[in-house]
């Protein structure tokens, strides 16, 4: 009880501190008021107009040719082009955590559920899993044009695998092939980075022509890398699910 009171007091002090300082003006200015952001004084302005290396003017959909990063989705152009090295680190963190889960929960046999899956679940999964898989693939192929990308698409693929797991007591993924897919996709990401190093002088340089903004075959290596990321994340999370549903013995 005493602990809760102290914790509540601590939270109250923290809340008052944040309330007093969040929008403070002048010397220690932290954040602008909600909605009053001036993008022209931020670095994002260069990412939106795609002119981090020099003036490019205004970018127009389906008209601008050979822009610096030809992806219509600006978040994608930051994640996979301007800050691609960051994404490589992110994929590595996900890989390390999947490796940790695999090391700690390396059971041989499949965990059995206490209640067997019923008929509606089994029949429903058969209809819906294919649609989920195709939507996942669509999302990571169109990551540079529409909302989404490699990470959401990969998670959707993993969710289809999870549905297979809960609808079938005997289902087990072929873990070896998923490991192979994951390793290949990760290495291809690195290889494309090194190709950029040899061709353009920078690691993960966008060495392919970027094309017209807004078309499917545009943005150079961005969609290719997002496909690798999608495959890697999908197989990694599927492995994670299969690790969680395994148990020791027999």
């Amino acid at each position: 009880m005493m602990k809760r009171v102290i914790a509540a007091l601590l939270i109250l002090v923290l809340a008052l501190f944040i309330y007093g300082n969040l929008y403070s003006t002048g010397e220690g200015k932290l954040f602008p008021k909600f909605g009053n952001v001036n993008l022209s004084e931020r670095v994002s302005n260069k990412f939106i107009n795609k002119n981090a290396n020099g003036e490019n003017g205004v970018v127009t959909y389906k008209e601008t040719k050979d822009a610096e990063s030809g992806s219509a989705n600006m978040v994608t152009s930051i994640v996979v082009n301007y800050r691609s090295f960051d994404t490589l680190g992110e994929v590595t963190v996900l890989f390390v955590s999947a490796l940790g889960v695999g090391l700690l929960l390396s059971g041989k046999s499949r965990m059995k559920f206490k209640t067997p899956p019923n008929f509606i679940l089994k029949a429903g999964v058969r209809i819906i899993a294919g649609i989920i898989l195709i939507t996942g693939v669509y999302i990571f192929i169109h990551g540079h044009l529409t909302p989404g990308g490699g990470f959401p698409g990969g998670s959707m693929i993993a969710s289809a695998v999870l549905l297979f797991y809960i609808s079938d007591d005997e289902f087990r993924t072929k873990v070896k092939s998923f490991k192979f897919l994951e390793g290949t996709a990760g290495s291809l990401y690195l290889i494309f980075g090194l190709l950029g190093l040899t061709m353009g002088g920078y690691f993960l340089y966008n060495f392919l022509p970027t094309g017209v903004v807004g078309e499917l075959f545009s943005a150079g290596i961005v969609p290719i890398i997002y496909i690798f990321v999608g495959l890697k994340v999908g197989s990694e999370l599927s492995n994670l699910i299969s690790d969680f549903l395994s148990e020791e013995g027999k």
């Binding site: 205004v58 959909y61 529409t146 807004g214």
Partner: peptide, 13 residues
């Protein structure tokens, strides 16, 4: 949302 689409140029704001 920061995605270019038809008829919206990337002007400030």
């Amino acid at each position: 949302a920061p995605i270019l689409f038809k008829g919206v140029p990337s002007t400030n704001g």
